[in-house]
Design a protein around this nucleic acid. Structure first.
Lengths: 189, 189
DNA sequence: TCAGCCATGTAATGGGTTACATGATTGA
DNA sequence: TCAATCATGTAACCCATTACATGGCTGA
């Protein structure tokens, strides 16, 4: 088989596309100036339920966002603590965030749990049951966390956070219901 | 800051770990011998609901799995069609699949939709509503597909496929319920 | 005649993970 | 005294995506 050398077509970008990881970072930075370290903490208790960049990825990302003009960096020297860099979102950053958020989401979300379940036949007997029980328990624990958050959340002040919470609860409850049903079906067999 | 050169610690693997993409491929190949092209078709109508490797990724993967002894390749010459390579899973492949499936799933599934919703405040007015409506509609369409599949599925013969289907239905219904609720909340505001 | 299927890839880049590394400070 | 927190990264992969490329056959 023969192949001609491919033609370099640098796709002329009207505006620089940003990834969802970058959206997550910019999104958190709309809530004020933060260091990389701060961001990791913030992500844990919020966006982290559905998006978790690795530490090294985050530290690699921040300077790049500064280069692209989406963030501004400010170095802060400290005595009792290591020096740190604080990042602040720029107007261009806000525009990029908006555009990134308004892109359509890809059609399929990959789902490791369903993949495993689907091929349950190829696991050892008992492994599927364990998988489902673990699922039920972790989802129940997650539900408890979500309900905790719900108490401290004002639906009128934080409408979108609230809607996201409701979505999370609905999903989690569905997963628990399913798990119980599935375990029964396994028993009957 | 100074860094010593990192020590090369090739982690002594007891058994070669496989990725979930590889699980998906091996899993489909437990159902018989297939070409790369066949696999893509097969994936579309099954695993593809929760796992979708790119075409180029698949074609790159298959020879590697052969090298590692998890698949066996067989070249088939054809007259009216281009020649093709058929792949068949080996006993080592089945073992690797089992081990891969039995690994614990990562705690968080990333969810592009929830990420967007969470930062809804930073979208233009109306964009969130569109996002939710699109979600509702695509989930409703998906539910219809799942119900179609359900009709041709024998719960006793294909238990795990059936359980996966139930999980999918439960999730989809939860998403639709949530979307309707969310749209009402947006109206009231 | 023309779209679409069959069949297999290459090239280039980008996104993301794991493991390693440092070292002072603070509270139990 | 010992673990945890604060704070920032490097190195090396590997997984995954997008775009490009080929070319005969088949049915509407």
């Amino acid at each position: 088989m023969r192949y001609d050398s491919p033609i370099r077509t640098k796709p002329a970008q009207t505006t620089e596309q940003i990834t969802l990881t970058e959206c997550a970072v910019l999104g958190v930075l709309t809530q004020g100036e933060h260091s990389g370290y701060d961001l990791l903490k913030r992500i844990e208790g919020g966006v982290g339920f559905f998006w978790t960049p690795a530490k090294s990825q985050l530290y690699a990302l921040l300077p790049k966002l500064v280069e692209r003009g989406l963030l501004k960096a400010r170095r802060v020297e400290q005595q009792k603590r290591p020096d740190k860099t604080l990042y602040r979102i720029t107007p261009a950053g806000r525009r990029a965030l908006r555009e990134g958020l308004e892109q359509p989401s890809p059609a399929v979300d990959r789902n490791a749990f369903e993949l495993r379940l689907f091929f349950g036949e190829h696991m050892r007997p008992g492994a599927v049951r364990k998988l489902i029980e673990a699922r039920r328990d972790s989802q129940a624990a997650h539900l408890a966390v979500l309900e905790e958050i719900e108490r401290d959340l004002d639906p009128t002040e934080q409408l979108y956070e609230y809607l996201t919470l409701l979505a999370g609860k609905e999903n989690t409850q569905a997963a628990i219901r399913w798990a119980e049903q599935a375990l029964e079906l396994l028993d009957r067999k």
